[in-house]
Amino acid sequence: MTTQESSSQVVHGLHYATGDAVAVRITDGAITSVSPLQAGEETAGRGKLPWIGPGLVDLQINGFRGKDFNTLPLSSDTVCEVTREVWQEGVTSYFPTVITNGDEAIAQAVRSIAEACRKDPVTAAGIGGIHLEGPFLSPEDGPRGAHDRRFTKAPDWDLFQSWQEAADGKIRIVTLSPEWPGTSAFVEQCAKSGVIVSIGHTAAEPAQIREAVSAGATLSTHFGNGAHLTLPRHPNYLWEQLAEDGLSTCVIADGFHLPSSVLKVVLRTKGRQAMLVSDAVHFSGMEPGDYVSHIGGQVTLTEEGRLHLTGNAKILAGSAQMLPWGISHLVKEELATLADAWEMASIRPAAFVGQPASQGMTAGAPADLVLMDQKDGRFQVQTVYKNGLKVWG
Rank of each mutant, 00 (worst) to 15 (best):
residue 237 Y to K: 03
residue 143 P to F: 07
residue 48 K to S: 13
residue 252 I to R: 04
residue 109 A to K: 02
residue 262 V to W: 06
residue 136 F to Q: 02
residue 168 D to I: 00
residue 346 S to W: 04
residue 357 A to L: 14
residue 134 G to L: 04
residue 268 R to W: 08
residue 149 R to D: 14
residue 162 S to M: 08
residue 241 Q to I: 05
residue 158 D to K: 15
residue 117 C to D: 09
residue 78 T to M: 10
residue 14 L to P: 05
residue 255 G to P: 07
residue 81 E to M: 03
residue 17 A to T: 14
residue 20 D to I: 12
residue 342 W to S: 05
residue 331 V to W: 11
residue 270 K to T: 09
residue 122 V to K: 15
residue 374 Q to K: 13
residue 361 M to N: 09
residue 57 V to D: 12
residue 186 F to M: 09
residue 23 A to E: 05
residue 72 L to C: 05
residue 120 D to Y: 06
residue 139 P to I: 08
residue 144 R to E: 09
residue 214 S to Q: 14
residue 338 L to P: 08
residue 120 D to Q: 07
residue 79 V to L: 04
residue 122 V to Q: 11
residue 191 A to H: 14
residue 308 H to Y: 13
residue 221 T to V: 13
residue 252 I to T: 11
residue 160 F to G: 02
residue 38 Q to Y: 09
residue 138 S to G: 04
residue 367 A to M: 06
residue 136 F to R: 03
residue 6 S to F: 14
residue 311 G to S: 12
residue 342 W to H: 13
residue 311 G to K: 11
residue 169 G to H: 03
residue 313 A to K: 11
residue 204 A to S: 12
residue 229 L to Q: 15
residue 279 D to R: 01
residue 231 L to S: 10
residue 77 D to L: 11
residue 149 R to C: 12
residue 120 D to M: 06
residue 383 T to F: 02
residue 375 K to F: 14
residue 91 V to H: 05
residue 6 S to M: 12
residue 170 K to C: 13
residue 224 G to V: 06
residue 325 W to I: 08
residue 377 G to P: 06
residue 331 V to K: 04
residue 54 P to A: 09
residue 115 E to P: 04
residue 21 A to W: 11
residue 291 Y to H: 03
residue 133 E to W: 01
residue 376 D to L: 09
residue 70 N to Y: 11
residue 331 V to Q: 06
residue 16 Y to I: 05
residue 81 E to P: 06
residue 259 P to T: 01
residue 243 A to E: 12
residue 239 W to F: 14
residue 177 S to N: 07
residue 176 L to Y: 02
residue 301 L to P: 02
residue 38 Q to K: 13
residue 3 T to W: 12
residue 340 D to G: 03
residue 54 P to E: 10
residue 7 S to Y: 14
residue 255 G to A: 07
residue 328 S to L: 07
residue 387 N to M: 12
residue 378 R to E: 14
residue 194 G to L: 02
residue 200 G to S: 10
residue 346 S to A: 14
residue 35 S to D: 10
residue 317 A to M: 12
residue 132 L to I: 00
residue 131 H to T: 00
residue 140 E to A: 14
residue 350 A to D: 10
residue 216 G to L: 08
residue 71 T to L: 14
residue 181 P to F: 02
residue 362 T to H: 13
residue 194 G to I: 04
residue 286 M to K: 07
residue 41 E to C: 09
residue 80 C to S: 15
residue 116 A to Y: 05
residue 167 A to E: 07
residue 270 K to P: 08
residue 217 A to L: 01
residue 11 V to C: 01
residue 219 L to Q: 09
residue 113 I to Y: 01
residue 59 L to M: 13
residue 137 L to D: 08
residue 203 A to T: 11
residue 111 R to F: 12
residue 173 I to Q: 04
residue 134 G to M: 07
residue 377 G to S: 07
residue 114 A to G: 13
residue 153 K to W: 00
residue 290 D to V: 15
residue 226 G to S: 10
residue 28 D to C: 00
residue 18 T to E: 03
residue 148 D to R: 13
residue 343 E to Q: 15
residue 292 V to R: 15
residue 194 G to V: 03
residue 60 Q to S: 10
residue 30 A to E: 14
residue 125 A to D: 15
residue 390 K to Q: 12
residue 119 K to I: 15
residue 69 F to Q: 05
residue 52 I to W: 04
residue 7 S to I: 13
residue 392 W to D: 06
residue 369 L to Q: 09
residue 203 A to F: 08
residue 191 A to C: 09
residue 125 A to E: 13
residue 255 G to Q: 08
residue 354 G to W: 06
residue 138 S to L: 05
residue 100 T to F: 12
